[in-house]
């Protein structure tokens, strides 16, 4: 029997397909040693860590691994919230106190202290987001912070693009 095309095989039901493939393989003297009755769309896969001799110069030391790999922070929203029990240890200030403190710090922003204060204010905002669920007051405050810290500019899209850039004006 001639080799079937993929289109012809696609028309067969799962059982017909298995039966036909086995039959045609047998006609060619082939029998699967590791027979897998896989559904359409499924697959077989295998992953292996490539073995390298422990004394190879390619293997990084623990210190090199630490230096190269520990360069990130992460946020997995919903699936990994900060447990309530940890919140007082992470941040001792209540959301209200934080909001009041952020507003005071925003009022005190000037050219001389901007670099220092922006670091503090953005850190406080991050703490506030961890402390309390996002709500309208946080969202409003975040907008005020963005304007105060980065200055204002006109979000005017580049012609033909739904986006753009401006240099911050302080």
């Amino acid at each position: 029997m001639a080799k079937l095309s993929r289109a012809e095989v696609e028309k067969l039901s799962r059982n017909e397909r298995i039966e036909m493939e086995l039959k045609l393989a047998a006609e060619h003297g082939m029998f699967p040693k590791n027979r897998m009755l896989l559904d359409k769309g499924s697959s077989a896969q295998m992953s292996s860590q490539v073995l390298i001799s422990a004394d190879s110069v390619l293997i990084p030391t623990h210190e090199e691994i630490r230096m190269n790999d520990l360069d990130y922070r992460m946020a997995v929203r919903d699936s990994n919230p900060v447990p309530d029990a940890l919140k007082p240890l992470l941040h001792r200030e209540s959301p209200k106190t934080l909001r009041d403190s952020i507003r005071r710090n925003l009022d005190s922003l000037n050219t001389a202290n901007r670099e220092l204060m922006m670091t503090k204010i953005l850190g406080q905002m991050r703490d506030l987001q961890i402390q309390s669920d996002a709500d309208q007051s946080n969202e409003d405050l975040q907008r005020i912070i963005a304007r105060a810290v980065f200055g204002t500019g006109e979000f005017k899209d580049i012609e033909g693009e739904p986006g753009g850039a401006f240099q911050n004006k302080k």
Binding site: A25, K33, N34, S43, V50, L58, N68
Partner: peptide, 27 residues
Amino acid sequence: YLSSDGKVKGYVKWAHTWVEGGIFSGD
């Protein structure tokens, strides 16, 4: 990665194989 003396190093760490579903996938 960078070695402790700042040199670029690297090696193949993982190998993966995927085969579409069928009677002979395993083989």
